[in-house]
Amino acid sequence: MISLSDSSVATTSFAFDRATQTTYLGETPNGITCFKGTASLDWAIGEVPNVSYVVALMTDSVLQHFSQRYQKHTVALNCFFFRKTLAAPFIIEIEPLKMSSKGYCVVKVSLKQSKDPRSSTVPSSIDQYDPTIYVEKVHGIFTMGNMDNEQGVTHFHDAPKAPTKDTMVPYKYVFMGEFLTSKLDMSTAPRQPDGSLATPKSAEILPGKPEVSHSMQFSDGRPIDFKSMPYWCDMFITPPALLGPNILGGPVWCPTMQLEVQFKRVPSGKEILGHYKAPHIINGRFDLDGEVFDSEGNLLALTRHQCLVVPWSRNSKTTPKARI
């Protein structure tokens, strides 16, 4: 097992890599490989580290785990969020479910944190790791393969198209905006009766459409890759937020219960184009579908989320800043 963290990531100039660094801890007697790290509050929505950032932490460990194997590419992942991940130390456990020399491999990946939220330490060696004092926050299933050597039928039917940048304008995100350069299509945003964009102080706000299109890249020039792809599959204005207060009843938080990503090709370049929509909200629960493309319009990944719509107070005790 070779860890890439200490040699390459620790000295990187890219903020995302510094924030998603995990370090190999060791292997337990029952064959579970463990990594450790610390989740950053800088990559949070309110007071909770963003779920896509949390999945990137898990992906960092998985990519290291498979770095010397034939299956070096993430083909799919499906994560279930049991509890809020805290901006605190964590352990990643990787358990093999189906291994192969040249075929696809499947592993179970768990992100765990101490049951004591005041704890700020993690073991320095695998011998010091006591699983009984940790609680699972995220449960994931990762499929790994080798896209460079995949062969077979290719056919497109009614395939999604990348959104155009012609209708996008520069946009600064309230959370994590300092790490990103982004543009947003404002055509689906809430409006005032005269057709102008609504503001938090607007006397009357007409609902927008729960659909988002944008372009995004890291402001420090970091290339897109497999580790950052889960982040691009969730880093956007939650489409239901565009429905406005008349429908939502006030500021809301949309916690993710489940996040799935299907990877379609090896990512390249520095910019992504994304399109995301929420066709249904039923009893405070909604599904969300998205597509992520590179700057040339090639489909990189599909994503599906299962989320809730809850009052913002469930996320933070502070009043939320305007998102639109």
Score class of each variant (00 low, 15 high):
211 E>Y: 14
84 K>G: 02
62 V>S: 01
150 E>N: 07
69 R>K: 04
218 F>I: 02
315 N>Y: 00
31 G>T: 08
207 P>V: 02
56 A>D: 03
62 V>E: 02
112 K>T: 13
317 K>C: 10
79 C>T: 10
230 P>D: 11
248 L>Q: 07
250 G>I: 07
157 H>Q: 06
317 K>Q: 14
17 D>N: 07
271 E>S: 06
119 S>F: 09
152 G>N: 01
40 S>W: 06
283 N>Y: 10
125 S>E: 13
232 W>F: 15
178 E>G: 14
37 G>R: 15
305 H>T: 01
266 V>Q: 12
102 K>M: 06
159 A>D: 08
163 P>E: 12
7 S>P: 01
63 L>Q: 03
234 D>K: 13
142 F>I: 00
317 K>A: 09
150 E>V: 06
250 G>N: 10
115 K>D: 10
245 P>G: 05
152 G>T: 03
196 S>E: 13
268 S>R: 15
18 R>L: 14
300 L>G: 13
201 K>A: 10
104 Y>C: 09
178 E>D: 14
153 V>S: 11
162 A>W: 05
145 G>V: 03
37 G>N: 11
201 K>V: 09
167 T>G: 00
65 H>K: 05
25 L>W: 11
231 Y>P: 06
149 N>R: 01
65 H>G: 01
314 R>F: 05
299 L>S: 15
224 I>L: 03
90 F>D: 14
232 W>E: 08
218 F>E: 00
294 D>F: 02
315 N>S: 01
248 L>P: 08
181 T>M: 05
321 K>T: 07
44 A>V: 00
168 M>I: 13
225 D>T: 12
277 K>G: 04
137 K>A: 01
102 K>A: 10
292 V>E: 05
178 E>W: 11
73 H>F: 00
202 S>C: 01
54 V>S: 06
172 K>N: 06
108 K>G: 05
166 D>R: 10
282 I>K: 11
220 D>N: 15
47 E>Y: 11
238 T>M: 10
308 L>D: 04
256 T>P: 08
126 I>T: 11
297 G>D: 12
173 Y>F: 15
16 F>G: 09
297 G>Y: 09
106 V>L: 05
323 R>S: 10
228 S>D: 08
146 N>Q: 00
96 P>V: 14
227 K>S: 11
2 I>T: 12
220 D>P: 06
34 C>Y: 06
158 D>H: 02
244 G>R: 09
250 G>K: 11
12 T>A: 04
224 I>K: 04
148 D>V: 13
174 V>C: 13
209 K>L: 04
154 T>S: 15
28 T>H: 12
124 S>D: 12
123 P>K: 07
22 T>R: 12
